[in-house]
Design a protein around this nucleic acid. Structure first.
Lengths: 209, 209, 209, 209
DNA sequence: GATGAATGAGCGTTCATTCAT
DNA sequence: AATGAATGAACGCTCATTCAT
């Protein structure tokens, strides 16, 4: 068996070491030996379990990203208002960062934002996330809850872009990282994207008054 | 001055070659000799004008980014509604991509999204952009046009994140790149962030009627 | 004895796997795991039976080469004309290739022609073959059947060199590999080396008449 | 210019170092740094002039082998008896070894006899040599000087095989390496292959008398 | 200014061999 | 006997940077 419960799973050890080392020094600025050292295993064992340094990162990304894709699909399946669904999506992503900041840092910094290397490689998987969010928006448009003149794919880009920017800001200390901030941000991002920055739209309100 | 008008400005030639080569192959996937070849100059001349390969990219970024920072400041100085100001900002950035797609690709892909390398190096400069946008939002909040409960820096993150996501989508062909799309996107992004995705909030509208 | 008849002889399995794998991919281009996989045994078992990857090849070579040395000695012991003896030697070697082409390919390609590695290691054993052939020639010289002015060791080199070249040509498809070709070649190589390429040396023959 | 006469040609220096190092330790048993050290140049310069370690060997082989192919063709063009032509060919090859033993050792040991690696890569070039020799034989057969029943390509194999075996014997000290031996061998190999080992075929001669 | 040959540290990967079970 | 995870030395290649001319 590849993952005996009684013994230490060295493969997992290497993956976890990859998270730490990639997060701290960046994928390109660390050597395979750094990962091996962090995992406390011999150099060669890394290549026993993975074909290359890149495969470690790919594995980390795909494992985690799929969980997110599944979560988005699951959220969309529920009978909830679009705003609540988007809140759940934002909440899931933000909680992911809250619970596993190093892993999410690696995924965001080394994959989804690394447009010219791993980002390109996983473009299709990344796009699936946009499409999952887009599906939520599309349904809301069909029901008349969301504006018709904003295409759902466009809306999905804005929503995901806003969240990724938030995570990036946390990662690089541009925004404070407290429990309250995380929790608060969930609502704020949905308020912003769904409700808009503007106060009661004067034009509409005035006319209707 | 380093730029005699009579002779060909080799420094400029190298910078322009950097744009092309970095955009096509990515900063890390091209060699200094690729830049020199593209510029049609000798290998060593690159090091006569620049201290390192990185300095070429830094120069490209700083040159262009400052133009954007100045534009944002200039826009904020005008007497316009916040929505119009944000439209002008979005318009400036989108037009930048429209007019110089390679340069903007390099800036977005290799610097602002490259969080672990150049992004970190230029964090302060990048943050200035958020702050410029944040200033626009802040003023609108003070005037009661924008919601009080969404902090301006948070709003700026969402706004900038949405635009960067858009550019990234164009760069990697996730969204169509036509003149109409570019023009349309300017309004859409402002509509989304300022007006929100939701149709007239029934509750409020009803009350006000 | 290491070879119990009731059980499968894993050692033999490994040796046979070595023949296949070394012949197909070459000794240096295959890994020990390739041999183990081909044999259907575990990685480590190879090292239970052999000290090293090299020992597998050494064993294959020595086993087979000794058979040839014995055959040459046996042939020389018979009361036959030198030409018939050389025909028998050529026949033995060519039949060896005909019957076990993979094994002979390994021996020729990886040992006798691999002058800088295994060829050097087994130089003495290889030399014994030359000496065996040389002994046949020497006797013929003593009997006046073979020319005095061609040293027997020199003749042996030419004879063996011609045959090895033939095998190499078959191995690499430079000559056709049919039953007829094999059979024909036995006579041709002896005709060439013993009788020479030239037609009846008119001058000499005429004079002797 | 790539080969300025006034300065030291480092590329040539590297090639010559390759000859020495490959001859002494064998291609696979030496590192690129060994070649660089022997040449007295920096590691990286080897890769400035050659794409890989293998390219050094390929270059050495092709340079020298072409000279031999040209020589064989030139010899065949002359108006000489076949035996003299073959003597010239044998002479050329043996003199090549006499004058540049290290280079010839590398070519023989690392290329023409390394059937599974470089030998295979250069199979066509090597075959050209057989064909060149075969052409000489073929002409002699047409003129009735050489036996009809020994195919020229077969004869060429025997002739080349005998010579290569001789060189190998010298390389590995199985035969003495003196000027006399070299000179003597030229005639002996031709005598053997053209005239055969057998003394005047008594039967035939007697009958003809 | 301009050239491109020369430098050498750095890193990913391979794979024969060992060893605990 | 049998397994295959674990080890780590070895090496080819890249490429940013320097420097002599």
């Amino acid at each position: 068996m590849k993952t005996p419960s009684r013994a230490i799973d060295k493969r997992r050890l290497i993956l976890d070491a990859g998270i730490q080392v990639f997060a701290q020094r960046g994928f390109h600025h660390c050597r395979v030996s750094d990962v091996a050292d962090e995992a406390g295993v011999a150099y060669g064992l890394v290549y026993h379990y993975f074909d290359s340094k890149e495969e470690i990162l790919n594995t980390l990304f795909l494992e985690r990203w799929q969980i997110m894709l599944d979560a988005i699909a699951e959220i969309d399946r529920q009978d909830l208002p679009a705003r609540d669904k988007l809140y759940a999506v934002a909440g899931f992503i933000i909680d992911s960062y809250r619970n596993e900041p190093e892993l999410m840092k690696v995924i965001i910094v080394e994959v989804t934002r690394a447009a010219n290397s791993f980002g390109r490689l996983h473009l299709d998987k990344i796009r699936e996330a946009y499409q999952g969010i887009g599906a939520i928006v599309e349904r809301a448009r069909a029901e008349g809850l969301f504006k018709r003149d904003i295409p759902s794919e466009f809306a999905a880009m804005c929503f995901y872009g806003a969240i990724e920017q938030l995570l990036t800001a946390w990662i690089f200390d541009l925004l404070p990282r407290t429990e309250e901030e995380f929790e608060h941000a969930k609502g704020l991002v949905v308020d912003t994207i769904c409700g808009g920055l503007e106060t009661a739209p004067a034009g509409t309100a005035a006319v209707s008054g």
